[in-house]
Design a protein around this nucleic acid. Structure first.
Length: 563
DNA sequence: CGACCCTGCGCG
DNA sequence: AAAGCGCGCAGGGTCG
């Protein structure tokens, strides 16, 4: 059963109960906000799926009332999937011009001062008709697109997983990641020196800058300016071609060591220093905003605070509350395992069975070291052609012809400008008009050699994108299913309360890694939930195909201790 | 002053 | 300017 929720005014919500085909099964209810809250609590005692325009805007309002829901259907996120999917290309949604449902991301929830979240759900009159029927029509189109598709089961799973992800993202933003500013401050002080006003260099950085100037014989060079720094290096006889750390590492000169250290510390200060702490940590929690579906492949993005780039350097400040633990799990060699399953490559799947997949490749005698196995696999999935990775590829292709054929097929499709599709049905965007123009030019009678080479380069670039899209996107689907399953099982635990300060809950997600903050006594149970959920996710995507999704799981007090 | 691009680097 | 995918962010620099 579905309940379609439409906001129509500051204190007005319309809820329509729909049957499995999306038809209203009773007259709509017009509720005030408070009545709506009560209604949601009531309905959550059963199983209902809430259908609404945008989880990111409506769910925080419920979370604020200490209300969590089990299931939803996010019209905006699902629309994007169905409009672009090759599996629903012939549906009405697939044929539509882009409209209001295609606008990428909603308004900033924290937008205008004094505005409530609901105020920001702007009335849209351009399509005519009241919002409720607009949402209802969209939902019907989505249900029809799914039902009419070749593989409705896959799409059904995908839209459910995507929507569950939206709930999880809102919950993680709301609950926040436990973060100790005192530990962070100690770490910054130890590395950089005592805190100074913005715009000034802390003591240790200032000393390094002075040393760099001395070593370069240039009393004024600003090490934060790549252009200036490069000129100064040249004047000092250092043949650097750029000021990137990995380039500098190859060079011999007294300035290199202090310079590399300066770069490292200066990055810490600018990306995760005191200013970052002031902006993003409140109440001992880091509250980044996650953006489900923010990446074309279906991965999440994040906005503000660089949540998905939290450096290893500062993970020691992510600390469980007293009496609580962090359970951290990451999927080992996720993408190669996904590739093995996608291509039904039994040999590659066997290499990863019950063990490190790269070690399994070595044990099979395909390559000689784990490092080679890794670089070869990554190269195969990213489209490397030269270097060590390129040299190792033929061996991989010989040992795992099915897996490599899948990546090659995806690359060729992209080079022809075609779209590719993940396991559950998310399709890549077609290349834009500029791409098509360049390709067309190469076939023109007057095409020059440079037209042709430009077209070839561009085609290969797009091929590398589609090659990777299939694997990265399917891995993202696996991760969503994994996380949705974890959430479901955590919610099913007997609870001593309802708030995030009493029950185990997800607090972090990083593509192939999750973190649960849990009362200490439940950590063993949480570990097994996470482990079982990985196997469940594998079955949801790949049925009985015998591929293992191995995890490393650790129960720790702080994030740095995991791994 | 903001808008924009470039460089560089963090994460998977 | 990594040999090859996907991101976000900060600071320098330029332009209007």
């Amino acid at each position: 059963m579905y309940q379609l929720v439409t906001r129509t005014g500051t204190d007005d919500v319309i809820v329509a109960t729909l049957d499995q085909h999306g038809s209203p099964s009773s007259p709509s209810r017009h509720l005030s906000l408070n009545e709506f809250f009560r209604y949601v609590r009531e309905q959550e005692r059963g199983t209902t799926r809430w259908v609404w325009e945008d989880t990111a805007r409506i769910y925080p309002v419920l979370l604020n009332q200490d209300i969590r829901v089990q299931r939803c259907h996010d019209l905006r996120l699902c629309h994007v999937i169905l409009r672009n999917s090759a599996l629903t290309a012939e549906s009405e949604i697939g044929r539509q011009d882009s409209g209001r449902w295609d606008s990428p991301v909603a308004l900033e929830p924290s937008g205008a001062p004094g505005a409530t979240l609901f105020d920001l759900v702007e009335a849209d009159t351009s399509d005519g008709g009241p919002e409720e029927s607009r949402d209802h029509e969209e939902f019907l189109l989505q249900l029809r697109a799914i039902t009419g598709a070749d593989q409705p089961g896959r799409l059904r799973l995908l839209v459910a997983a995507e929507s569950a992800g939206a709930l999880i993202a809102a919950e993680m933003t709301f609950a926040g990641l436990p973060f100790r500013t005192d530990i962070h401050d100690d770490l910054l002080t130890r590395e950089l020196g005592p805190r100074v006003a913005p715009g000034y260099r802390p003591e240790r950085l200032e000393r390094l800058a002075a040393q760099i100037r001395r070593d370069l014989g240039d009393p004024t060079v600003n090490p934060d300016s790549p252009a200036e720094l490069l000129r100064a290096l040249h004047r000092a006889g250092v043949p650097a071609t750029s000021t990137r750390a990995w380039i500098l590492k190859e060079l011999e000169h007294p300035v290199i060591e202090p310079l590399l250290l300066y770069k490292k510390l200066s990055r810490l200060l600018s990306a995760n220093g005191w200013a970052w702490m002031d902006s993003w940590i409140s109440g001992s929690r880091f509250h980044p905003e996650y953006v489900p579906g923010g990446v074309v492949t279906g991965r999440w993005a994040a906005r503000g605070g660089g949540a998905l780039q939290l450096p290893k350097q500062i993970r020691g400040a992510v600390v469980a509350d007293p009496g609580w633990k962090l359970v951290v799990a990451d999927a080992a060699q996720l993408e190669p395992r996904i590739l093995a399953a996608l291509s039904a490559d039994h040999t590659m799947a066997a290499a990863g069975r019950g063990s490190d997949l790269y070690a399994g490749i070595v044990a099979s005698g395909v390559v000689d070291t784990r490092e080679h196995a890794k670089v070869a696999m990554l190269g195969a999935m990213y489209g490397a052609t030269t270097g060590e990775s390129g040299r190792l590829l033929p061996r991989l292709a010989q040992a795992y012809p099915r897996a490599i054929a899948l990546t090659e097929t995806a690359a060729r499709a992209g080079e022809r400008g075609e779209i590719v599709t993940t396991r559950l049905g998310r399709s890549s965007p077609p290349p834009g008009p500029a791409w098509q123009v360049v390709q067309a030019q190469a076939y023109d009678t007057g095409a020059t050699a440079s037209d042709e080479s430009r077209a070839r380069t561009q085609a290969r670039d797009w091929g590398r994108f589609t090659r990777n899209f299939v694997v990265q996107g399917s891995a993202a689907e696996w991760a969503l299913c994994w996380m949705a399953e974890i959430r479901k099982e955590l919610q099913a635990l007997p609870a001593s309360g309802s708030g995030f300060d009493t029950v185990p809950h997800l607090v972090f997600f990083l593509h192939d890694e999750v973190m649960v903050h849990t009362p200490e006594g439940l950590s063993a149970r949480v570990e097994s939930i996470i482990t079982e959920a990985a196997a469940t996710a594998g079955r949801l995507l790949f049925g009985e195909f015998p591929v293992d999704f191995m995890l490393t799981v650790a129960t720790v007090d702080n994030y740095a201790a995991a791994k």
